[in-house]
Amino acid sequence: MNVSFWVMAISFMIIRLSPGDPAIARLGAGADPAAIDALRKQLKLDVNPLQQLVSYIVDLLHGNLGTSLQFGSDVFETIRRTLPLTLTYIFFSAFFALLLSIPIGVVLGWTNKASFVYIYRSITSVIIATPNFFIAMVGILLFSIRRDWAPVFGYVAEFPQNLKFLWLPVAINTLIMTAIISRVLQSSVVETKNEEFVETGIIRGVSRPRFFWYYILKPSMAPTVVLMSYMMGTMLGATVILETIFSLPGIGRELVGAVLASDYPLVQGILLFFGVITVALSFLGDICAYLLDRRVKL
């Protein structure tokens, strides 16, 4: 609750407390003073900061995020248009990452063979240390230019065609996420392996699939789930870059466009959404971790 208040206040303050006048930033230093005054009035910058915060919160409670300066349309409308695409491919990336991480993490954690683990950790280190936009550029070079498997950029919103545009960004996100998640899962499987109940399971002769699911995977999942919710927040941040590269019409590209156009109500609105989604994700992650492992404290 406290945190969500700060998320709101920060997304409000960031732009207002930064040195520099948003109205001048939007119109340019040489603009007509009357126009600047008018814009300041429109943005409600002409009253004192406390009043600004109050009117912002009141507007927010009415579901009013303001009007975009670029499009003249409702900010909420713009977000609703762009957010679903971003969320869709983030969820798909997370889903595939989990699908890949579970076998990798469990097998490597269970066997824990030094040479395999060493190779695997080296590869994942390289992936983690590589910026996503560089991976994306290499991906474009390999799959869009050398082979004709993916279009260089662009997007078509209809269902079967859009897969052609989306698979590469999803693959890149999945690769990065798998590298991080499977590592954590692998080390928690190694830890779980030393617990007494695992030995009990072996002695009792629990069937293979049941053993791996209930005795190994389930107790090891909690840190992975928490990390995953955090990673999805980070992925949300990374969309700013990925969507620019692939020119996907998602919320990240919208934010960059809004920033470059100094469209300040839109920036503020998108910021608020990012904050809220991140907080919600980490809350969800904590709850899932608790459901999986009751030893986790909420």
């Binding site: 700060w6 998320v7 920060i10 948003p22 930033a25 700013v240 934010l255 503020q268 904050g275 991140t278």
Partner: peptide
């Protein structure tokens, strides 16, 4: 302490890249 720690959590709640992009709107 509780106000400051929730401020810290609030700041940490935002992806760094997002905040940076947004703040550069005004800072240039």
């Amino acid at each position: 302490v509780s106000i400051v720690s929730s401020l810290i959590d609030g700041i940490n709640a935002f992806p760094l890249l997002i905040i940076a992009v947004a703040m550069l709107t005004v800072l240039g």
